[in-house]
Design a protein around this nucleic acid. Structure first.
Length: 572
RNA sequence: CGGAGCGUAGCGUAGCCCGGUAUCGCGCCAGUUUUGGGAACUGGAGGCCGCAGGUUCGAAUCCUGCCGUUCCGACCA
């Protein structure tokens, strides 16, 4: 491609609205432009990269027997009402105003609607179906360029199986394909166990790219044997010890003490594990509200995602006005003993199992209780894993320690089970002639997000650094023309040889009247791996120069050897 | 949704407090010189100062409302 014909609007300065490296660089390198919040146009240079990602995905999906579809981006709202997701997604789904249609945020329903009348016998299964399609989500806060947008390209795949064992096989094939995809994309990634979110389902793994710009926190053990999303992570920690002193619970005055830290200071306690922290949650259900009081050690926090896993996505923190009504006190004086509403479920973290001599709120403003014995004083108490794990804790097997890192989720695979098949009536007849719901898996990859993640991991102060399969061009031929016809002739000759004979994706900076510095800086910014530089100075000696973008290494070589050297270097 | 900020030429900005018809840099166009790491000079084009209303002789500037957008948080896959 000749740069004089290629639309590549590069920017010298960072756009003021961009904060993360990939966002800045994708705009500066002329890959994307924003149309409105969370919505980006793909410019030619960006589109080349996105297509590379798509093609890698396509090849790996086809390799495991995937069938490519292209489904509509709009669908009837009714289809979503049937699975209950019209409500579940709520405002996250774009709705069309003048027709009962929605913009699809994902495609389980639509794929299932095709599966239903066509996958009717166990002989029709298994199937893997996928598409690469624009998705629309009315994100409340889009951020970091294409990392979280309102419109984005997603590869979504679905497996249809006749047994849970077969689903395991489909899932494992997919997991392997995902590893291939992200490896081929040149990403440093890690696979973590995850929460399957609003989609429902059981086993679930996320493909995570460690990067500061990420929105997720992931937990990785130092020995690499454990990896998990912080939302579901567990660790090993000693339980709070039981003292068996059988001291009577006793109320004491704690004026203006609202937080655990204040309580620790007030009581002169250094170890906050016996200062039990209470929080009240409301689980809004069809039959009215269920109230849940959680109890964790004073130095721990409740992991709300774990609560969602136990209670469903509708559980929420109680509002301040509700607290008084439920407990009899305001936040800061709430505890498990003496609650105003007796129909409240009390769930304590596993670390607090049968603990005694605890201090917690007395459900009376400005009072706390000490010597609470959970075994003795709290009837019907349940114990569950509730806490958020912390950096430096031991892994569950006690063989390693955990680290917490920010990461970008580029892919997610999970076993859906029969949720959509059941609600939409997609069944098949098994060998005995019995009707069963199709067992599904669901698998997604964010295309632009994958490219952005690559850039997050591969850039320097000059710009992007491409390598391997994602590189939009393998070589940039920089002609420092000036008045020299010879430079121009040699450049044209080499360009022809590279692009026509060797079939190498070559970008040819054939701009005239552009100073060398501008060309060098543009080349570094857009990050093509190998720069072949033709200038008058070297050419006088019969030489050309080659620079590797990543390392900055330079080679001055005979012009006759240029082609071979380029071919050698692009293999890296 | 809560908090904070921003909106002036393609991009980045000054001016706003204290009202008088918009500053500077980059980029763009023409010309001359230049040509290996974002050139110099000369000349030029380009603006409903986010929108609407109000105050005023007069509004980029003050007031009200709205819209857009960014960041933090909440929410979300």
């Amino acid at each position: 491609m000749r740069l004089t014909k290629f639309f590549l609007p590069t920017l010298k300065d960072d756009p003021v609205d961009a904060v993360t490296a990939s966002h800045k660089l994708m705009i500066r390198a002329g890959m994307i432009r924003q149309l409105t919040s969370g919505v980006y146009s793909s410019l030619p240079f960006g589109l080349i990269v996105f297509r590379k990602v798509e093609n890698i995905i396509r090849e790996e999906m086809n390799a495991i027997g995937g069938n490519e579809f292209l489904l509509p981006a709009i669908s009837p709202a009714e289809l979503w009402a049937e699975t209950g997701r019209l409500e579940d997604y709520g405002d996250l789904m774009f709705r069309i105003k003048n027709r009962e249609l929605v913009l699809c945020p994902t495609h389980e329903e639509v794929f299932t609607s095709i599966a239903k009348p066509n996958l009717i016998s166990y002989k029709d299964l298994p199937q893997v179906w996928y598409q690469i399609q624009s998705k629309f989500r009315n994100e409340e806060r889009p951020r970091a360029g294409v990392l979280r947008g309102r419109q984005f390209t997603m590869k979504d795949a679905y497996s249809f199986d006749s047994s849970w064992e077969a689903l395991d096989r489909s899932y494992n094939d997919m997991a392997k394909a995902y590893r291939n995809i992200f490896t081929r994309c040149g990403l440093d990634f890690t696979v973590v166990s995850a929460h399957s979110g609003a989609m429902g389902g059981s086993d679930s793994e996320e493909f995570m790219v460690p990067a500061g710009a990420g929105e997720d926190n992931i937990v990785i053990s130092e020995d690499g044997s454990y990896a998990s999303n912080l939302e579901v992570a567990v660790s090993y920690k000693e339980k709070v010890d039981r003292k068996n002193s059988d001291l009577a619970a006793e109320e004491f005055h704690t004026p203006d003490i609202k937080t655990i830290d204040e309580l620790a200071d007030f009581t002169g306690t250094k170890d906050k594990s016996h200062l039990a922290k209470s929080r009240v949650f409301v689980n809004a259900g069809k039959d009215g509200n269920e109230y849940v009081l959680t109890l964790v050690c004073g130095d721990d926090e409740v992991n709300e995602m774990k609560l969602q896993n136990y209670f469903g996505i509708n559980i929420r923190s109680a509002h301040n006005e509700e607290l008084m009504e439920i407990t009899g006190a305001d936040a800061g004086s709430i505890g498990p003993v003496g609650l105003k509403n007796k129909n409240i479920r009390i769930i304590a973290d596993l670390l607090l199992e049968d603990a005694d001599e605890l201090v917690s709120g007395a459900n009376k403003n400005d009072y706390h209780l000490k010597n609470i014995d959970l075994k003795r004083d709290v009837k019907g108490i349940e114990y569950k894993d509730l806490r958020i794990v912390k950096e430096g804790e031991e892994t569950s097997d006690r063989k390693s320690k955990i680290k917490i890192t920010r990461a970008i989720e580029v892919g997610h695979i999970f076993k859906l089970g029969t949720k959509y098949a059941e609600s939409l009536g997609a069944t098949f007849l098994d060998a005995e002639g019995k009707e069963n719901p199709v067992i599904m898996g669901s698998y997604g990859i964010g295309v632009e997000r994958t490219a952005a993640s690559y850039i997050e991991q591969n850039n320097d102060d000059k710009g992007i650094i491409w390598k391997g399969e994602l590189a939009p061009f393998k070589v940039i031929l920089i002609s420092l023309g000036g008045k020299s016809d010879e430079v121009k002739n040699i450049s044209e000759e080499l360009y022809g040889q590279l692009s026509n004979e060797k079939k190498i994706e070559t970008l040819y900076d054939d701009r005239e009247g552009v100073r060398p510095g501008v060309k060098f800086n543009d080349a570094d910014l857009i990050g093509i791996p190998v720069q072949l530089i033709i200038g008058e100075k070297n050419l006088k000696e019969g030489n050309v120069e080659i620079k590797k973008r990543r390392t900055g290494e330079r080679f001055i070589i005979r012009k006759e050897d240029a082609l071979n050297k380029v071919m050698e270097l692009i293999k890296d």
